[in-house]
Amino acid sequence: MSDTARSTFDIRFDENNQEFAIIGSMRPQRVEELSGCARMLETSLAMVRGTFYVNVKRLVRLNNIAFHMLANLLVKACEERPDLRVLVITSSVVGWSTRKFRALQRAHASIAVEEYDNEFYPGQAFLEEGGFIPILRTQTKMTWRHEKDILPRHGLREGLTVADICCGIGDFAALVHKEFKPARLVALDHSRSSLDYARKVAADFGLQGIEYIYGDASEMLIEDDQFDFVTCRHSLQIFDRPELILAELFRICKPGGRVYVTNEKISHCLGEPRGDSIQWTYNELSKLFAHFSMDLEFGPKSRRAMIDAGFGDIRAETFMVTNTDGDPQDFTDTVNAWKVLFAQDMSARRGDSKAFMERFARGFDDHIFAALHPKGYAGWPIWVVSGRKPQ
């Protein structure tokens, strides 16, 4: 819906979820310009029972004329219907929206406002704590030895418009910028500390031209059909509803463009000698992440998820990061960081016993032993899947 040059927005009502969503910029010059929106809101309110969700996570602008129209209709509905509860869902990405809509809580007791935040990224808090951020750079260094040859098979070449979604500390985006020289490169993440580190990485590489954006991967403030190639690495597995991210990756990709994702099946980490201990620990690691609503077994599921999201021409392959890829110390540094984060911090937060945590940690130590053993072998498998958005 577009009412004026200053007011361009879409409104959608999902009857199954009782959700009324407003997307875009709502800045009318006269309230009459919002008559269509008002009618649809009133009709939607009449159809629901219980909680009515108002989703403004992707409402980037709202003037007072539009706000008062929405507020009056919502308050009026709550006054007329004691059974009705209104929940307005805002986003921390759009800083003003929570402050603006919280006025509705004061206007009526049946209206509440919730800010959609990183609680929807269960793994993010763990990965931002302590000293784990630097080890992510080592991980990317190890995977890049493989991915720089894999990416062209999945359609990446020089001169494309590229988005790296859930970019984390930005090292992958920096490497893509250097190797493939994209015409445009946007890197988005929901962690301010990671983006701060990402800007430091770009400075260390002496790179300019990467657009860093603070944003929510499941509700991006990016227009449709923007990028030739969209990447999202090791992220679907730590998001409790990966289909939401995939839908957004599909949306921002140009028709004919490709989306590239990587994920793990952590229980397939391996090593010899001491293979049994290593296998036990990584099986338990999968269960630990499941406890926190994450799926480190997502790798092989990626192909089906891409098909379900509407992609075609699916390409899938795997590679194994090993202790024989460059310096084995990089591998052991990574596993040791995993041990600290998973076998200590996360395991303790789950409430595991001291005996369990000791055995859990021992498997990581045995993985390190295998990596450093002169005759040993240690591996960490990655699944790569890409799909084309239909023309």
Rank of each mutant, 00 (worst) to 15 (best):
G256L: 11
A109Y: 04
R184I: 03
H177E: 02
I23P: 03
E128M: 12
S25F: 00
I23C: 11
G170M: 12
I89V: 12
Y282M: 03
D14H: 04
E179W: 15
P152F: 02
R258L: 10
K181A: 14
I307N: 00
A361R: 09
R362W: 13
H234E: 01
F205D: 07
Q124D: 12
P182A: 05
D171R: 07
D3V: 15
R362K: 09
G24K: 03
A46S: 12
T318D: 12
S35C: 12
D196Y: 06
A371G: 07
E119Q: 10
G351Q: 10
F9M: 11
R12E: 00
V186G: 02
G275N: 08
H177G: 00
A217W: 06
I368V: 09
L87T: 03
S7D: 02
K178M: 13
G95W: 01
A348Y: 00
D149Q: 06
K339L: 11
L87N: 08
L185E: 02
A5D: 15
N17Y: 00
V261D: 00
I150A: 07
S194G: 10
Q29H: 05
K181V: 11
R153P: 03
D189T: 13
L207N: 01
F239P: 04
G159V: 08
G36C: 14
E80A: 04
K76I: 04
W383V: 02
V56Y: 12
E119K: 06
S97V: 03
T231M: 08
S386W: 09
A198E: 08
L288Y: 07
N17Q: 04
I213A: 11
A66K: 03
K76Q: 14
A202L: 12
R303Q: 13
E248G: 05
L151D: 01
L62R: 01
N55M: 06
V88D: 02
C269R: 14
W380Y: 15
F289H: 14
V93H: 05
I89F: 00
D225S: 05
S218I: 08
I238D: 07
M69H: 08
A361P: 01
S347I: 08
Q237S: 00
N64H: 02
S347L: 08
I135A: 12
V86W: 00
K181H: 14
A38K: 10
F67C: 02
P134W: 06
F239L: 15
F298C: 05
N283L: 06
T231K: 03
P390D: 15
Q279S: 10
F369T: 02
D10H: 12
D216A: 13
E79M: 08
Y214I: 10
G24E: 11
T332Q: 05
L160E: 04
G95H: 07
A343L: 09
A38W: 03
K200S: 11
R258V: 07
C78Q: 04
I266W: 10
A198S: 09
L151K: 02
H268G: 10
A66W: 00
N283R: 06
R49E: 10
A174L: 10
E79P: 00
G351E: 09
N263Y: 10
V88C: 01
L285E: 11
I382H: 09
L59R: 09
V321W: 09
L156T: 01
A217R: 06
Q208F: 13
L236E: 04
V75R: 09
A371L: 10
Y377K: 14
G312R: 09
N283K: 05
D327C: 15
